[in-house]
Simulated scan of single mutants.
Amino acid sequence: MKVIFWVSLFLLFYTYLGYGMLLFFLVKFKGKRKIPAPAPDSEVPKVTFLVAAYNESHWIKEKFRNSLELDYPAEKLELLFVTDGSDDDTPDQLRALSQDTSIRVLVEHQPERRGKIAAVHRVMPKVNSPIVIYSDANTLLNTQAIRNIVRHYQVPEVGAVAGEKRILQEEKEEASSSGEGFYWKYESQLKKWDAQLYSVVGAAGELFSIRTDLYENIPNDTIIEDFYLTLRIAQKGYRVQYEDQAYAMETASASVKEELKRKIRIAAGGLQAIYRLAPLLNIFRYGWLSFQYISHRVLRWTLAPLALITLFISNLALLSTGSLFYQITLAGQVLFYLAALLGWLLEKRKLRSKALFIPYYFCIMNYAVYRGLFRILGGRQSVLWERAQRKV
Rank of each mutant, 00 (worst) to 15 (best):
L11D: 02
L11S: 01
L11Q: 03
Y14M: 11
Y16Q: 12
F25Q: 11
F29M: 15
G31Y: 13
G31A: 12
K32N: 13
R33G: 08
D41L: 09
V47G: 01
L50M: 00
A53N: 03
S57E: 10
W59H: 13
R65K: 15
E69M: 15
L70C: 05
S86P: 08
D92C: 07
D100T: 11
V105S: 04
K116W: 07
N128E: 13
S129Y: 08
Y134H: 09
A137K: 03
N138L: 03
L141W: 06
T143E: 15
T143Q: 14
A145W: 02
R147T: 02
R151Y: 08
H152C: 08
A160H: 03
V161A: 04
V161E: 06
E164D: 13
K165E: 10
R166V: 14
E170G: 15
K172E: 14
K172H: 14
K172Y: 12
F182G: 06
K192C: 09
D194F: 08
D194N: 15
A195H: 05
Q196C: 07
L197T: 06
Y198Q: 11
G205I: 01
G205A: 13
F208V: 05
R211K: 15
L214G: 06
I218W: 06
D221H: 07
E225P: 01
L231W: 00
Q235H: 09
Q235T: 06
Y238S: 12
R239T: 13
Y247F: 15
A248S: 14
A248D: 05
M249W: 06
A254H: 12
E258I: 07
K263P: 04
K263C: 06
A267I: 01
A267Q: 02
L271A: 03
L271T: 05
Q272Y: 07
R276Q: 12
I283Y: 11
F284L: 14
L289P: 04
L289M: 12
F291N: 03
I294M: 08
V298M: 06
V298N: 02
P305I: 06
L311K: 00
I313F: 06
L330V: 09
A331V: 08
V334S: 09
A339F: 11
L341T: 07
L345G: 11
K350P: 07
K354N: 14
L356W: 01
F357M: 11
P359V: 08
A368N: 06
L373T: 03
I376E: 10
I376G: 07
L377N: 13
G379A: 09
G379E: 11
R380N: 09
S382W: 02
V383W: 01
E386P: 03
